[in-house]
Nucleic acid binder design. Sequence first.
DNA 1: ACCTGAACACCGTTCAAGT
DNA 2: ACCTGAACACCGTTCAAGT
Lengths: 202, 202
Amino acid sequence: MNPEAVLDAALDLLDGGALTMRALATRVGLTPGALYTYFPDRTAIVAALVERLLAEADLGLLENGEGTASARITAFSLNLRETLMRHPAAVPAILGAAFNGPVALRVGESLLGLLPDPRASYAVIAYVLGSIALEAAETSAPLTPEPERIAQRRAAFQVDPETFPRTHAAADAIAGYISTDQFRWGLDHLLTALLADTADRL
Amino acid sequence: MNPEAVLDAALDLLDGGALTMRALATRVGLTPGALYTYFPDRTAIVAALVERLLAEADLGLLENGEGTASARITAFSLNLRETLMRHPAAVPAILGAAFNGPVALRVGESLLGLLPDPRASYAVIAYVLGSIALEAAETSAPLTPEPERIAQRRAAFQVDPETFPRTHAAADAIAGYISTDQFRWGLDHLLTALLADTADRL
DNA sequence: ACCTGAACACCGTTCAAGT
DNA sequence: ACCTGAACACCGTTCAAGT
């Protein structure tokens, strides 16, 4: 047995929504107590899992990608979203880690080089992680393809037209909220503002 | 005994980081089983708590506030942040609720009236909740005043200048990341982009 | 309707003892 | 070092029985 194999099983269980030390031990063919040979406690396992997932994102898109700063940040953000949304159950843990592990440091370092103001880096991170968190919260079921999810949400979305007229009228757009297009549209606007020379000293 | 009193105690325990049915029962002078007279299960208690906290935010700032759309959204966002950060431990639950309870619907309805595109509403929500989530994740301890928190973070923040030169150089700014100024700066930029006529059909 | 007491089926973690 | 078996101190939830 080795730590990596434990993490493999732990990710599986987390995706299934039932990561317990006992289930994990059974999965890897050990007794619960034996897990403490590899990790000091359950939180350490979750932390290692978070770091492993973040490491799956393609940092190259940010660090040595082609194109403008905006294009590279967008490409990486989309890649990060895709990577993390393969494991929605892990997203709360990623937010909870406050984004200050080794991978997060590299992301921050790159963003500092691509944006004119340190505050812009943080704004991008807040938007990207906020979007992913909202999306993960909505994704209880594994994850059906995006068009299906939008259609289901549209069908389920019913509000009183009297009290929420605008919400009712915009129901189609709202059903599409959690989508790649929505994610990208907001990020485009944010980056436009952050990269505009005139806005630097707002 | 009544549901509201149960929620009062539940919020106290959640803030303390130990909301269990047993502790809650003890706190209100009941047996654990008796709690199920008031709420069907633990998740219902957390859900009710989330809704109560959201209801504490001043919706008037958004719905019948003064000034421009930008000013009203900013005022409400700052108020929401302040409200939620009084209970950092509840923030993950708020994100987990996918922001679709009754209060969230009212917020969404107002935003739709203040912004030119439904997608802009969602972008604002993603940024605001993302910022609050990152802030809450960092706030383990109750909450010391903001200047102290920044100073502590600055003192604790040490990275290798060789591998993370920009991060090292921007350490002061980074220590100030989680602050009202930072929150507002990013929101200002985002709103500027979302409200710019030329950006509407990007 | 509201509550108790007791149980059921779980948890994470520790630790002496073995190899 | 690695693992077992057993325990400790918890969980959320259910339910017969009482008022």
